[in-house]
């Protein structure tokens, strides 16, 4: 029965869009405002609503809803689904905290979870530290030619696919990789540094993977800052770091929030970089989710874990936004 909720709830989406289009003209205080259907005509209006509804339903709402309800069921072979052993349960969520077989705390998964979150926070911070000066230079300081060149240098590496990029980093950072060979060659170190085993590779790979995602929101935010504001602060006697602290960063806050949110979310949910660049003992949370889906074929538990990660990330991000007094709307400006 509960599986049919998936097909009932989406009707609300259709109704929602229809109501929105009805309400839109009423809510607009401008009497000359044309309603959605007046603006687009009946045929196009229906097409738009149908397309958006289709998109929302089949690509967003239904898959997620299916996963949500999946996560509240026990793991069953297809034959037994909908049978007497199929019932709603939170055991999949519980299993994240308490190991079902032994009854002990599920330290392995909990540790992987917090490691993923903390590493993502760290990666986000490193990314910000690298990208803020870059974005500032591109938006305010650099000449057009230099900015274009820099932009090209930033973008071109991303034409290479993610796996190749991760592996090439592995080649650079490996025990017998280029960096270790060079350092040993010039006599700075005697024994190779274990970049990969100490998760150095993971941090570098994750930071690098989302560099652009941090740079562009920052660039957009800083670029619209009136140069005169910077000069005014300088003229009033502010040294450079106070100009950034008092004028540029407060102004770019929505862009910073947007960039940090995306980098954090993406790196917490990333799969390739941790698998290729993580050390042998490193367990990334998404790898666990992946394994539940494709190794253990335990979709309910995988779905539950995925939602735990999603919820945790959303709560974390909302808390950070609240802390820095940025509204969610501003980050998608």
């Amino acid at each position: 029965m509960s599986r049919f909720i998936v097909f009932l709830l989406p009707l609300a989406v259709i109704a929602g869009f229809w109501l929105l289009s009805r309400q839109e003209s009423k809510l607009a205080h401008d009497p000359t405002h044309k309603s959605f259907f007046q603006r687009n005509g009946a045929v196009l209006g229906i097409v738009f609503i149908a397309l958006v509804t289709f998109w929302m339903l089949f690509l967003v709402v239904m898959p997620y809803l299916y996963m949500v309800q999946e996560s509240f069921h026990p793991r069953l072979p297809p034959m037994k689904r909908g049978g007497p052993e199929d019932f709603l349960t939170i055991q999949q969520y519980k299993s994240f905290f308490v190991e079902p077989s032994s009854g002990n705390w599920n330290t392995l998964h909990l540790r992987a979870f917090f490691f993923s979150i903390l590493t993502s926070v760290f990666v986000t911070a490193v990314n910000f530290a690298i990208c803020y000066p870059l974005a500032y230079y591109m938006a305010q300081a650099g000449t057009i030619q230099k900015v274009r060149l820099l932009m090209l240098c930033l973008i071109v590496p991303y034409w290479v696919n993610e796996i190749l990029r991760a592996f090439s980093l592995r080649l650079l950072l490996a025990s017998k990789g280029l960096i270790n060979q060079t350092l040993m060659g010039i006599g700075i170190i005697d024994t190779p540094i274990d970049f990969l085993g100490t998760n150095m590779g993971l941090y570098v790979g994750l930071s690098y993977a989302y560099l652009l995602i941090m740079v562009f929101p920052l660039y957009n935010a800083i670029e619209s800052l009136d140069k005169n504001q910077i000069e005014a602060a300088r003229d009033l006697g502010a040294p450079w770091w106070k100009i950034h602290r008092d004028v540029v960063i407060p102004y770019a806050k929505p862009g910073i929030a947007s960039g940090c949110t995306m980098v954090f979310m993406l790196s917490a949910g990333s799969l390739a970089a941790p698998q290729f660049l993580g050390g042998p003992s490193t367990l990334w949370f998404t790898s666990i989710v992946y394994d539940f889906f494709f190794q253990a074929f335990n979709w309910p538990r995988g779905a539950a874990y995925a939602f735990i990660l999603l919820t945790a990330c959303i709560i974390f991000v909302l808390a950070i936004l609240k802390l820095f007094k940025v509204s969610l709307g501003e980050t998608i400006r």
């Binding site: 504001q229 003229d235 009033l236």
Partner: peptide
């Protein structure tokens, strides 16, 4: 001290 054409007051 300079007064800018667009004033450049700090909006925040």
């Amino acid at each position: 001290a300079l007064i800018f054409q667009n004033l450049a007051l700090f909006p925040l």
